[in-house]
Nucleic acid binder design. Structure first.
Lengths: 238, 238
DNA sequence: CGATAACTTGAATGCCGTCAACAGAAGTGG
DNA sequence: CCACTTCTGTTGACGGCATTCAAGTTATCG
C-alpha cells in the first residue's frame, strides 16, 4: 500500500487507478487556491446560475433541497476530495443547493480548469468514474429510503461512509472522524433526528458501534453490514 | 411548433435544442435495428458486464434493485427516446437491473455508435443534458420519497410523467397513454400498491384525474401540481 | 372462456413522526 | 475564566400514516 498522496483530489481519483505524475501535478496546480467556508453556509443555492465548479478538500458538505413543509432532504454527502457539481454548468440554473455541514476548505474551480483536466485521459476516465459512482450512491440511497426501515438505513449509511472515508485514507482501523449531527443523518435518510438517535443508541448498546468526541468506531463491521444489507459493490472501488 | 420527428431519440434530444439534419440522419442510422422485448423481462441484470447501451424507442422500461425483503425499488422510469444506461460501460459490472414494464422496442447500441454520436457537438451536448436531467429526476424522486407523504408523491410523479411525455410529443391535451400498474408506481415511490390505489381513487373522486383503459387524463393540472408541489424546473426543458 | 394479473376496499397492526422535557456539549461574550 | 446561550443528544408518551392481511371485483391475456 503506497502512502496516500497529500492532495485529497488525487487520493480520490486514484481510487480508480494510478495517475501519471504530470496529471498529479496538474491536479495540484488547479486545487491551489482554497477558501475557508464556515459550517452551515450555502456554497451555491437553488436557482443560481452555476459558474464555478466546487471541490471539497477538507470538511463535509452536502447537496440538499427544501420542501414546502420546511423539511430538508440531503441528496448527497461530500467527503474531502469530492466535487459537488462537476458537470452542472451545462444547466442554466441550479435545481438544488450545496451547503457545508462542517467548516470546509473549498476550491472554486473555473470550468476551464475542468477542461484542462479532461484533456488528460487518465484524469478524464477517473472523473467519469467518480461521476458514475456518485450516481450509484444516489441510487443506493433511494433504495435505502424507499425500501428499508430506519435501523437498516442508518447501518447502511454508516457502512458507506466508512468505506468512502477509507478509500481516501481518512480512517484509522475501524474508526474515523464523524462530524455529522444526528439531524444531518436524519435529513439524508428521510427520518427524524429522534428516530436516528434511537437507532444509534441501540447500535451502541449492542456494542456494534461506539460514538464519542466527533468520532465513530465500527466495532463489529460484519454485523453492521448485515444489518444494513451493505455490499460495497456499488462504490465500484477497483 | 414544428411537427415532431418520427424518431423518438431525435425528439428527446431536440428537447434541448434543434439538431442539424446530418445529426438526425446519424441518429436514425444507429437506431435502425430494434428488438421487441416482452413486458416484465430484464434487458440487463445486476452483476452482468455492460456491453451494449440500451435505448427505448417504444414502451416503458425501468431501472430497479431488489432488497433482501423481496421488495423492489424502481430507480428510474424510461420513456420512449431515453437511454437506460448511456455511460454505464465505464463500470465493470451493473449494480442494478434494467427491465421492461410493458412490451418495448429496444435498440442494443454498441458503444462505438455512442462514440460516433459524441463526435457531433450538438448531439454530445444533448446527451450530456439528458444525462444531467436523468440525475435531476433521480434527486427529485429522493426528495419525494424522503420527505413527502403518499398523496404528494403520487401527484408529483403523475405531473412528472405528464411533462416528460409531453416533451416527446406523446400527450394529447391533458391525457396520455398510461400503462404503469399501481404496483409499478408503488415500487417507484417507496409505497405499497394499496396506498397508491387509495391515493388514486381519492384523486379520481376529486375530479383531478381520470384513469381508464390504460389512459390517464389530468383534468385539473394546477391542482395536481399544487398537491405534488411540482415545478418542472428540474427537468430543464428549454 | 378460463386463468391470471390488476384493481378495490376494509380492518388491524406497527413503525415512525410529533411533541415535550431535560441533559450535556459547545460556543459566545462579559 | 465563568455565566450564559445555543446547539446537539437523549428519552418517553402519544398519535397517525402507511403497511400488512384478506377478500372480492374487474381487466386482461392466452
Amino acid at each position: 500500500m503506497a502512502k496516500p498522496h497529500r492532495n485529497m483530489l488525487v487520493r480520490k481519483l486514484e481510487g480508480f487507478g494510478p495517475l501519471p505524475d504530470a496529471d498529479r501535478d496538474l491536479i495540484e496546480e488547479v486545487t491551489q487556491e482554497t477558501r475557508r467556508v464556515p459550517a452551515h453556509s450555502d456554497i451555491i443555492s437553488e436557482g443560481q446560475n452555476p459558474e464555478n465548479v466546487h471541490l471539497i478538500l477538507d470538511g463535509l458538505a452536502c447537496r440538499y433541497k427544501l420542501v414546502d413543509s420546511g423539511h430538508r432532504q440531503i441528496l448527497a454527502i461530500f467527503l474531502p476530495g469530492e466535487f459537488c457539481d462537476l458537470y452542472i454548468f451545462i444547466l442554466k440554473q441550479m435545481d438544488h443547493s450545496i451547503s457545508t455541514l462542517t467548516a470546509c476548505d473549498v476550491v472554486d474551480m473555473p470550468r476551464e480548469a475542468i477542461f484542462r483536466m479532461l484533456e488528460r485521459p487518465a484524469i478524464a476516465r477517473a472523473l467519469w468514474w467518480a461521476t458514475l459512482v456518485d450516481e450509484a450512491i444516489l441510487r443506493e440511497r433511494l433504495v435505502d429510503i424507499g425500501r428499508r426501515p430506519a435501523r437498516e438505513r442508518v447501518a447502511h449509511l454508516l457502512c458507506e461512509l466508512y468505506v468512502r472515508m477509507r478509500a481516501v485514507g481518512l480512517t484509522e482501523g475501524g474508526s474515523f472522524d464523524f462530524r455529522l449531527t444526528q439531524t444531518d443523518i436524519a435529513d439524508a435518510l428521510g427520518l427524524t433526528n429522534v428516530s436516528v438517535n434511537k437507532v444509534i443508541m441501540e447500535l451502541r448498546r449492542e456494542g456494534i458501534i461506539d460514538v464519542a468526541n466527533s468520532h465513530i468506531c465500527v466495532l463489529k463491521q460484519d454485523d453492521l453490514q448485515a444489518i444494513g444489507q451493505f455490499s460495497a459493490d456499488y462504490l465500484h472501488l477497483t
